[in-house]
Simulated scan of single mutants.
Amino acid sequence: MKVLHVAEALKGGVETYLKSLVLSLKDRDVESFLLVKEDVSWLEKSHVYYYDHGSRSILGLFKLARMYLHLVKKLNVDIVHLHGTFSGLVCRLAKVFTRRVPIIYCSHGWAYSMDKKNLTKKFYQVTEYLLSFLCHKVVCISHYDFSIKVTPPNKTVLIENAITDHFSDEYVKPEGKKLLFVGRFDHQKGIDILLNAFKKVDANYELIVVGDAVHGNTISKMEYPNVSFLGWLSGEELKQAYLMSSAVIIPSRWEGFGLVALEAMSASRTIFTSGAGGLKHLTKITRGREFSNEQELIQLLEAFNNFDNNTIQKLGCIARNKFVEKYTVNRMAKELNELYMEVKL
């Protein structure tokens, strides 16, 4: 079976999702092709196609549509899998110009769940509803996304996110007590909320921050002498950052799912979250800790002073067990492959 994945915005969670999925689908005789604008190094070059994107302008989206139509014909694919709002918009509207090929769409977090004005949210909802009639199935990545869907129930399925497991079942004791943040320095990820709260806490542990600014959202790191800023890490370095931490904190303002939470769970680390979007379900099933405002966050950061090694290990093992039970990439690949087979018939 041939599947064409289209992602107008790849970097971040979508790339983590696609890399895990595509590599796992190889074992199920699914040949995957990518249409993207960013460089991809984890798939053979013959299966990756790029388009001259420029900006998110009418011209840029037209170039995406043109390359999409070309590849559907050239590759003779069996399934098209669209990732993200803009890919879903462009390629579903272009459906009228293609041969009949089943389309699956995943928003990777509804646009109307973001911190936007009500009128803007309503526009996104109406758009998603209307566009759902131009595809065969709509995939929701979390219980939260599924609960706020506006797409028809008979077209919408829940297939929760998953990641490749880079850790083992054996618990690794952290190096001292450390709290870890991983993510972009932007409004969505809430790094400002965390840093402002941490300044008000007399902590007996270290706050480790992995990530950096995007789109000019810089942080004056000198203002936070008790915080270790490590910049972007990947591969083995990121793995070690998880293992040296005692817990992982995710203060996002909105989140379709939250793959950092899965990475923490995989590493046997408990999660402290804002409960935004898909994070609420993950926090609940792992017996993590949730906060909804700055005062609750400060109280949680202070309470973490009293977490002993036994508590940290117990919560970490609960998180690991839930990950193995529900969030391995093999489960996600199996469910998506079954969906591919269903719509192909």
Rank of each mutant, 00 (worst) to 15 (best):
S252Y: 09
L259A: 09
H281K: 14
A276R: 07
D202M: 08
R253I: 08
N293M: 00
R289E: 03
R287L: 11
N204H: 02
I208A: 03
A267D: 06
K221W: 09
S245K: 13
H215M: 14
K280D: 05
R253W: 00
P225T: 15
I219E: 02
E223L: 11
M222H: 13
S292R: 06
S252A: 03
K239H: 05
I208L: 14
M244D: 10
L207I: 01
L207P: 10
R269E: 02
S274C: 00
V209T: 13
I219S: 14
K221E: 15
M244F: 02
T273K: 00
R287D: 15
F291G: 13
I285W: 07
T283P: 03
G288D: 04
P251R: 08
Y205L: 11
E263R: 04
E206P: 05
L230A: 06
G211F: 03
V214I: 15
T270G: 07
I271M: 04
T218Y: 01
A261D: 02
L282S: 01
G278C: 10
G256A: 07
V227H: 03
K280I: 07
S274I: 05
I208M: 10
G216Y: 00
V210S: 06
R287P: 02
L207E: 11
A247I: 15
A213E: 13
L207Q: 07
S252K: 03
L238M: 05
H281V: 02
A241Q: 06
E237I: 08
V209E: 10
N293P: 01
G216I: 04
L207W: 05
V248E: 00
N293T: 03
S252W: 05
R289K: 14
F272Q: 10
T283C: 05
L238Q: 09
E223H: 11
L233Y: 08
M265K: 05
M244A: 09
S268K: 06
Y205D: 12
N293V: 05
